[in-house]
């Protein structure tokens, strides 16, 4: 039961802060091998930025930016990136997710290829975690109906 929560302070601050949250999430994903963070944490922050928009505005505003269809596609896309990099290593003759072998297809040496492989995996994980977070929140908050406002 949420009333018409038409508050200009909360809406403005959430609208201004959301891009910075998303940039920070990308930083956490991309900087994951040198500092705390990685795909899961960055994906959670990305998902939380959309959840913040749902709380400040309503579900329709977020579904205009991130539709249900796009969300499901991105949820699968992350898994495909993850499994695709792993299977590429397998096809090239190494173990599953053994990124060092990727230097045969990438124009870098084995050490760089390992770092690039890790980054690719983390991007895939981040995309999936973000979509699943948004999907879980939208389904719980609206009782599976995906209508505006919130639970009655």
């Amino acid at each position: 039961m949420i009333k018409d929560f038409d508050n200009i302070i909360i809406k403005t601050v959430c609208r201004i802060l959301t891009p910075f949250l998303q940039i920070f999430a990308l930083y956490v994903i991309a900087h994951g091998h040198y500092s705390p963070g990685g795909g899961f944490q960055g994906g959670c922050i990305l998902g939380a930025s959309f959840i913040l928009l749902v709380i400040a505005y309503d579900i329709d505003t977020v579904k205009k930016r991130m539709s249900e269809k796009l969300n499901t596609v991105m949820c699968s896309l992350g898994v495909i990136i993850y499994a695709g990099i792993g299977l590429t290593c397998l096809i090239l003759g190494a173990n599953y997710l053994d990124y060092g072998i990727l230097h045969r297809v990438l124009p870098v040496d084995a050490v760089k290829a390992r770092a690039m492989g890790t980054l690719g995996i983390e991007i895939g994980v981040g995309i999936t975690v973000m979509s699943v977070m948004i999907s879980i929140f939208l389904n719980i908050a609206s009782g599976g109906k995906h209508e505006e406002g919130a639970i009655d």
Partner: peptide, 9 residues
């Protein structure tokens, strides 16, 4: 920015 807004909310 965030803390006063959270208190307001």
């Amino acid at each position: 920015i965030a803390n006063p807004t959270a208190t307001h909310a």
